[in-house]
Structure formats: structure tokens, C-alpha cells
């Protein structure tokens, strides 16, 4: 009985130490399957001006997500849709849908479309523990899929809460491109996650803020939402 207990304890520790499992847990906290969010973005330009957006999202799974712009007035009705590896944006002023890329900027800010619309790093990056610090652990995520947006990411995770603290994005030469800081952990229903994200672009020196205003996990979201021909309807 004692040995069985020890074996169970070792197995638990092994699971807990599995970097991929830890990152997967973070993914599901940030974007649980079948979830609805309301995000407020503030893009700070280097000239001192700011642009604010409010977008509501629905996510069925990492391959199916949909965003609808609520604010500002001139962007109201704009939509973004992910269908597996394809991304579309619908522009209400012309009534047309346009194919866009993961790497393109989301709403002109410093988040890319991939940063916002697809939180499934483990499918595109291989995860290793880079350094185990006193309060935090640093994980390295190296691109394994050809269509990964970044060559490498590093993720700082608070060991106590399991919440992400900081994330850095690099190119293949090791040049730091962007830094994402996570803060203000809040509980949305049963899910706890950081509600404030600050993305800083190292190259352009611009930054964008994201505040999670609400998040809920309904049992299901409508499939019809995730169809290109339904954009704008």
C-alpha cells in the first residue's frame, strides 16, 4: 500500500513537471474550449495617441473562433473568423470578407492575429523547461510546425498559481521581437486567468493592452457562427 502511494506520488510529480502539460493547462485557462469573451484593446502609438477597441469573441475549439467588433463606432460590425489554418476578416463598409494571415497585426496593434485567435501553442511548439527559479519556471517553446508565427517563445509561469507571468517572442536568430506581460488574475466563472495583458513591441516600441472584461464557458456555441458565408449576417 505504501509503495502504491509512493508510485502515485511519483506519477503525480512527473505529470506536474511535464512542461507540455503545464503549458496546455495555461492554454485552457486563457482560452477554454466553447468559450465567450469580451476584450477591450488599447493600442498606444509612438506618437502618443491611443486607439481603443472592444471585441466580443466566441471560441468552439482552437481551430474555430470568431470575433465581432463592438467599438469604436467606425469599426462596429467588423468580424474576424478562424477556420483551422485560415483567417478571414469581414469589413462591413464594403460587405466583403478578406483572407488574412496569422502574422498580421490584430486591429493595428501589437498583438498578431495568432496571439489573439489561437491559443494552442502546444500544437505548434515543442515545450521544454528552460529554468526552474524560486517562484517562477521558464519554459521554452520552439516552433515545430512550419506555420508557427514565431521561431521561439519563452513563457514565465508562476509556480504557485500556475498562471503565466510573462511571455517573450523571438525570431530564429534569437532577436527579441515582443514581450507580453500578464497581470490581474481574476476568476471568470470557474476559470481563473490573468485579465490584463500588455504586449510591448521591442522593435517598434509600441504597446497594446488587452483587458478581459468577461469570459464565460457555455456548453456549446453555434456552429453557424464559424462559416465564412455567414460573416456579416
Amino acid at each position: 500500500m505504501k509503495s502504491l502511494f509512493l508510485l502515485l506520488q511519483v506519477c503525480t510529480q512527473v505529470w506536474a513537471a511535464d512542461p507540455t502539460a503545464i503549458v496546455k493547462k495555461i492554454e485552457s485557462a486563457l482560452a477554454p474550449p466553447t468559450s465567450k469573451f469580451s476584450y477591450a484593446f488599447t493600442n498606444h502609438r509612438t506618437d502618443g495617441t491611443t486607439v481603443e477597441y472592444e471585441v466580443s469573441f466566441q471560441m468552439k475549439d482552437p481551430d474555430h473562433s470568431h470575433g465581432y467588433f463592438i467599438k469604436p463606432e467606425r469599426e462596429k460590425g467588423r468580424e474576424v473568423l478562424r477556420l483551422e489554418n485560415d483567417l478571414w476578416t469581414y469589413m462591413p463598409n464594403v460587405g466583403k470578407s478578406v483572407h488574412i494571415a496569422d502574422r498580421d497585426s490584430f486591429a493595428g496593434g501589437d498583438f498578431s492575429n495568432a496571439d489573439i485567435l489561437r491559443v494552442d501553442w502546444t500544437s505548434k511548439y515543442s515545450v521544454t523547461l528552460l529554468k526552474d527559479l524560486t517562484n517562477q519556471a521558464i519554459y521554452e517553446l520552439k516552433a515545430k510546425a512550419k506555420d508557427a508565427t514565431y521561431a521561439k517563445m519563452r513563457l514565465w509561469v508562476d509556480k504557485k498559481s500556475g498562471m503565466p507571468v510573462q511571455q517573450k517572442f523571438y525570431d530564429s536568430q534569437g532577436t527579441l521581437l515582443k514581450r507580453l506581460s500578464y497581470g490581474e488574475v481574476k476568476k471568470f466563472g470557474k476559470t481563473e486567468r490573468p485579465s490584463y495583458l500588455l504586449m510591448e513591441n521591442v522593435i517598434t516600441k509600441q504597446k497594446s493592452e488587452l483587458r478581459v472584461q468577461s469570459m464565460e464557458s457555455p456548453a456549446d456555441v453555434k456552429d453557424s457562427r464559424f462559416r465564412v458565408d455567414n460573416l456579416g449576417k
Binding site: 527559479l133 514565465w156 510573462q166 517573450k168 534569437g174 532577436t175 527579441l176 497581470g183 521591442v202
Partner: peptide, 23 residues
Amino acid sequence: IEDDELTEAPPIGTTLSEDAPKA
């Protein structure tokens, strides 16, 4: 390059170092 900033993340809002690692 090897990023030697393998220390704990600073509190949110800390200015990003000007000499951020670059190739």
C-alpha cells in the same frame, strides 16, 4: 544569441530594457 535574462519576470509595467537582446 543567448538571452541571459533567465531571471524571474519583473512586475507588470516594468519598462522593457532598451538593450533588449538583438542579434
